[in-house]
């Protein structure tokens, strides 16, 4: 039995020192520019001949266009992004998916590879079987196929060569800010520590035991019988807590930073990684190691 009640005066400040000067922060209503000739972009509004910020964030200037990038926002999808999402609704020929965006994303029945893999017409039978494939609460990994006019996303789970989209099995989901995920060539990683990880661009991170590449393609059946061994579980939990430590200190998440954090966390037990001081230490050490790399 262990518990700790700490006082607010002992609260840990998670900010990690960095040699880069912090960018200028704009708060809503702050004047960005009083000169004319600028174009107002997202996150700004015009008042009294000046451009003001409508959200808290940093300014981004592209030629004449002034945009405020919010520090904290919901996920703004881009075509080609890898996302992890949860099915919230089964509708006519489509599923609704929660991807942490303003609107639920759609996954059409024709955008998935149905079991069997062969090309076939999406028939009435398929429509009636939809709940058998994916039902409310199921987690999927998918790619953004299109952005609709209302800003909602269309997803697809047609797998390519070695990337496997589709239903996710046993494992755990972590939610972080979408802005913390570094955009990379691949968002699927089999880490050397012995766990597999999907870094969704929408800030949903999926940790699971290493997926065997030989498994049946486009699987909609999930093995619930086999328990994940304790050793693998410990690796996954450590990974989860390391990622949470990095996220608390707002360090970008990608395979290298996660691997570094995992290695740094080795000197602590898994439970200790819940302590704010330990989390900060892991984050600082990781940041240091990342800076050495540059």
């Amino acid at each position: 039995m262990a518990h700790s009640i700490r006082l607010a005066s002992e609260r840990v400040d998670f900010s990690v020192p960095s040699d880069k000067a912090p960018p200028q922060l704009f708060t809503p209503g702050m004047v960005i520019s009083q000169e004319s000739g600028f174009m107002r972009g997202h996150g700004t509004y015009g008042e009294d001949d000046s451009i003001k910020a409508s959200v808290a964030g940093i300014v981004d200037r592209v030629n004449k266009l002034v945009v405020i990038k919010p520090l904290k926002s919901r996920y703004n999808g881009e075509i080609g992004d890898v996302v992890v999402g949860r099915i919230t609704e089964v509708q006519q020929k489509r599923w609704k998916v929660d991807t942490n965006a303003r609107l639920d994303a759609t996954l059409f029945l024709y955008s998935v590879n149905l079991p069997g893999g062969e090309l076939r017409r999406r028939s009435v039978e398929d429509e009636q079987m939809m709940r058998k494939y994916l039902t409310e609460g199921d987690l999927i990994s998918a790619e953004v196929q299109n952005i609709n006019s209302d800003g909602s996303l269309s997803l697809h789970t047609r797998s390519l060569k070695n990337i496997k989209y589709g239903k996710l099995g046993q494992g755990m989901l972590i939610k972080v800010f979408p802005s913390l995920i570094k955009r990379q060539k691949t968002h699927f990683h089999n880490l050397p520590c012995g766990a597999s990880i999907i870094l969704g661009n929408n800030g949903f991170i999926w940790i699971s035991p290493v997926i065997n590449a030989e498994e049946e393609h486009g699987g909609f059946t999930i093995n619930l019988e086999d328990a994940v061994p304790k050793s693998v579980r410990e690796v996954m939990v450590r990974l989860r807590n390391s990622i949470n430590a990095l996220a608390a200190s707002k360090i970008l998440l990608f395979d290298t930073s996660i691997q570094y954090a995992y290695d740094q966390s080795k000197k602590y037990s898994v439970v200790e990684l819940l302590n704010p001081e330990v989390m900060l230490d892991v984050a600082v050490m990781t940041q240091h190691q990342l800076q050495m790399l540059e």
């Binding site: 039995m1 262990a2 518990h3 700790s4 009640i5 700490r6 006082l7 607010a8 609260r11 755990m172 328990a227 304790k230 579980r233 410990e234 939990v237 450590r238 989860r240 807590n241 037990s269 898994v270 439970v271 990684l273 819940l274 302590n275 704010p276």
Partner: peptide
């Protein structure tokens, strides 16, 4: 197996702040 999703054992509390 006495290892929960955040690394705690069955009898552990998460850290609290008061």
């Amino acid at each position: 197996v006495d290892l929960r999703c955040d690394g705690r054992r069955r009898g552990d509390y998460r850290p609290m702040e008061l």
